[in-house]
Design a protein around this nucleic acid. Structure first.
Lengths: 213, 213
DNA sequence: CTTTTATTGTGAATGTACACACAATAAGTA
DNA sequence: TACTTATTGTGTGTACATTCACAATAAAAG
């Protein structure tokens, strides 16, 4: 396990590098320098090297990085060398959108169970191959049974904290939260928060400053 | 207009303060100190004061901040003292989820037009009150006509850049992008990027480091 | 009107992240 | 094997962000 603290932005950028490397691999590029990679993903080459240096030495001096190897290394660093099962809570509009999002698979994620207070034909028909819908009452049981560690909260904000509590009880260790609420969880549980309102508000700030609408 | 550069995190936090202040107002709290506000939203009180100091003096020494006033001030700072019309491009699963998201209204946003390559009964029936669906060909015309400045891209990644180009042509100045692609736009256009894949990958990094699955 | 109290606004200190510049070094070439 | 070339890995300086600590000051109390 790592000894030194790695900045969060570094992890964020690793994920960008990974996407870029996948593209390069598809294009048939075998070797790339930090300079070229930096160009492609809009990041300073020194930054890339520093980011990677937190985890070891992956390049070859005078040559660069072998695309395939670096991709595998970053995947391993980020824990993406195996598939992750994900539990989805809330099969409303957003939940269904997430279920149909094809991008997860490419990243090695699979929503294999979904939960809702209501189990009806509409929701059942939204389930893709390999994903089972359960009543919300079954959350602890099913998640424990399947040893799932990742969950997505896509319920109304008034219920988000309650859901989070149940997920923690069920053994979930990482939560992606779409509800506009700061979740209270034990510190061994990691939460990432996607807040559409905040994102739009940040846009309007920059716009007002510029166009002075 | 502001003379000094304001860090992006400060804008992010202003948005948090705003939400917190709205909650306080609903609870009937009239005055709050930076210490209490900091407690509530998990931010150092000195940080809050510094953030606000970029824009002026809003508190009363020995007393604190008047909730209602500060809320209005932050709204004004962020350009949220008027309603913003938003154009949505892509009425697939994600687009429909966004159309039904009630949170936007609370923040003063209104999706008033939507565009898709396909205009069929399924999509038309997803339109809420006050939102019109147009064929994608009408983008430039409608957006210019209505002088809309904000747009959300919720199309397949293979089309995102093309859509962005059209939006820029139509006069859009702020884009919220859900497609996993770094958009290329003129520098007077602001883009915020929501990348589900990256968010999940960041989770697995922290998890792997902890539970070493 | 003066003193006390509470809390802001801010200069200075600390901590963190970024970018530069170069020594270290792997591979290719003579 | 020695030399050249390209590019990494990293020590160092700089810029930026956060936190501390206190002087400034508004309101309340005497």
């Amino acid at each position: 396990m790592r000894k030194f603290k790695v900045p969060e932005v570094t992890i964020f950028r690793l994920s960008l590098y990974l996407r870029c490397l996948s593209e390069l691999e598809e294009e048939g590029v075998e070797v790339i320098s930090s300079a070229e990679l930096g160009q492609r993903c809009g990041i300073n080459p020194a930054q890339i090297r520093k980011d990677l240096a937190y985890f070891g030495e992956f390049g070859t001096r005078g040559v660069g990085y072998y695309v395939k190897d670096l991709k595998e290394d970053i995947k391993r660093i980020m824990g993406l060398d195996k598939e992750w099962e994900v539990a989805l809570v809330g099969v409303g509009n957003l939940g269904r959108a997430l279920l149909s999002y094809q991008g997860f698979k490419r990243h090695g994620f699979k929503i294999s169970v979904a939960f809702d207070k209501v189990v009806d034909e509409e929701r059942l028909s939204a389930m893709p191959e390999g994903c089972t819908l359960y009543h919300a009452d079954k959350m602890v049981e099913v998640i424990r049974e399947r040893k799932i560690k990742l969950a997505i909260i896509a319920v109304h904000f008034s219920e988000a904290q309650k859901v989070a509590d149940v997920l923690v009880e069920a053994g979930i260790k990482g939560i992606l939260n779409f509800a506009p609420v700061r979740l209270n969880v034990p510190k061994d549980v990691v939460v990432r928060h996607i807040d559409l309102g905040v994102e739009l508000e940040m846009l309007t700030f920059f716009l007002s400053a510029r166009i002075g609408k």
